[in-house]
Simulated scan of single mutants.
Amino acid sequence: MSKGWCWQRVEATFPENQMKSIFRAFDTNGDGKLSRKELKVCFKSFGLRFAGFRAWRAIRHVDANGDGMIGEDEIDELIKYVSKWGIIVTP
């Protein structure tokens, strides 16, 4: 058995509208955007390891306008990005 970093995959399936609702629910300050901190809490709720690192990577990957947040117009790209971790989103 090797020791070191182990990326955990979560096996879960969500309809797209439910996934969007989940992300919106973690917008705790109600500004319509997800900060890194809010995204970290969201990823922890999915049971993902290294939630802070994953939140940072997600923002770097998804944040098209460079404001450091994930806005409503970037949610679809976020859903595609998290699907790499075993979170399946269905139409």
Rank of each mutant, 00 (worst) to 15 (best):
S2H: 10
K3D: 05
K3V: 02
K3Q: 04
W5M: 00
W7M: 06
W7V: 03
W7G: 01
Q8P: 01
T13F: 05
F14K: 06
F14A: 02
F14S: 02
E16P: 05
E16W: 14
Q18L: 13
K20Q: 13
K20A: 14
S21I: 02
S21V: 05
F23P: 07
A25Y: 14
A25P: 00
F26I: 08
D27L: 05
T28F: 15
N29C: 11
N29Q: 12
G32C: 08
L34P: 12
L34H: 10
L34Y: 09
S35E: 10
S35K: 13
R36E: 15
K37V: 14
L39K: 01
L39F: 12
V41D: 15
V41G: 08
V41R: 13
C42T: 10
F43W: 02
K44D: 09
S45C: 09
F46E: 07
F46I: 04
G47I: 06
F50H: 05
A51P: 08
A51Q: 06
A51S: 08
A55E: 01
A55C: 02
A55V: 00
W56E: 07
I59V: 12
H61N: 11
H61A: 15
V62H: 12
A64P: 00
A64W: 03
N65H: 04
N65I: 05
D67V: 03
D67G: 05
G68T: 07
G68F: 07
M69W: 15
M69I: 09
I70G: 11
G71T: 06
D73C: 09
E74V: 02
E74G: 10
I75F: 13
D76L: 13
L78F: 15
I79L: 14
Y81F: 11
V82H: 04
V82D: 07
S83G: 13
K84D: 10
I87H: 06
I87M: 11
I88V: 15
I88G: 03
I88Q: 13
I88A: 12
P91L: 14
